[in-house]
Amino acid sequence: MKKNKFLKENMGFLFIIPWLIGFLVFKAYPFASSLFYSFTDFHLFKGMSTFTLQNYLDVFQKPLELKALVVTFKYAFMTVPLKLVAALFIAYILNFKIKGVNFFRTAYYIPSILGGSVAIAVLWRALFKDDGLINGLLAIFHIPAVHFMSDPNWALFIICLLRVWQFGSAMVIFLAALKGVSVDLYEAASIDGAGKWRQFFSITVPLITPVIFYNLITQLVQAFQEFNGPFIITAGGPRNATTLMSLLIYNNAFKNYKMGKASAQAWVLFVILMAFTALSFWSQKHWVYYADEDGR
C-alpha cells in the first residue's frame, strides 16, 4: 500500500525520465558552458585569458549591439501580433465548410515549407527592390516608389513581412485547436441568435486560449531568435537596420569565433525571453481558460 502511494505520487516523474536524461546529457552541459563562456573572453582559436563582465556591458554600451537589441524588440513587436492575427483569422475561415479546403490549407502552408529556401531570397529581393514588382504595382496607383531594401526604416518591415507571410505553422495549430471546439456550443449559440463574430469572440476565442497562449509564447521566442530572414535577404543591412540579435550572435560565434561575446549576447536574449514568458504565465490566470483546472 505504501509502495503504491509512492508510485502514485511519483508516476508523473517516471514519464519525464527520458526528457530528464536528455536534459542532463544533451542540454545541461552546452547550457552551462555557454553561461560560463559569457563571463570570459573565450575565443575558439585564441583561448581564454580573463574573466570579465565586458561582454554584458558591451550589449548595452556598444552602439551596434544596442541597436541590434532595439531592432530585435521592434521586429518582435511588429511580427508577433500581425502573424497571430493573420493565422487565427485564416484558420477561422478555413474552419467553415469550404469547398477545396484541403487545397487552401496546403496553399497557405507552402510558404512555411519554403522556409529559408534560397528561392525565397531571390524572390523577396526581386519583389522589393527599387524597380521590383511591388513598386511596379504601386506605380499603377501613382504611389511613388518606396525604397524597401535601401531605406533603413523600411528594410525591417520586409523582413517582418516575410515571417508574417509564413504564418502556416501558427495557422495549423489554431486549426487543430478550432477543431476541438465542440459543434454543440456553436449550435446553441446560433439558436440564441448570436452573430458569427460574436460567436467567434465569445465562444471560440475563450475556448482556444491555451493554444493562443502557446502560439504567443512560441512566436515571441521565434521572433526574438529570428535569423533566416535578415541572413538570406538583407545580410543585416542597410546600416544595420535589420541586424537582429541572433544575426549578431551568429556572426560572433560562427564567423569570428568570439564565443564569450556571443554567449553573453545570447544570455541577454535568454533573460529577456524568460521575463516575457514569466509575465505571460503570470497573466494566464486572467485570460487563459483551462478545461482541466480544478474548480472550473
Binding site: R125, A126, K129, H147, M149, S150, I233, G237
Partner: peptide, 11 residues
Amino acid sequence: TIATLAGDGNV
C-alpha cells in the same frame, strides 16, 4: 551609392 546597390536588391 551603397543605397542604390541595396535598392537593386542587395544581390
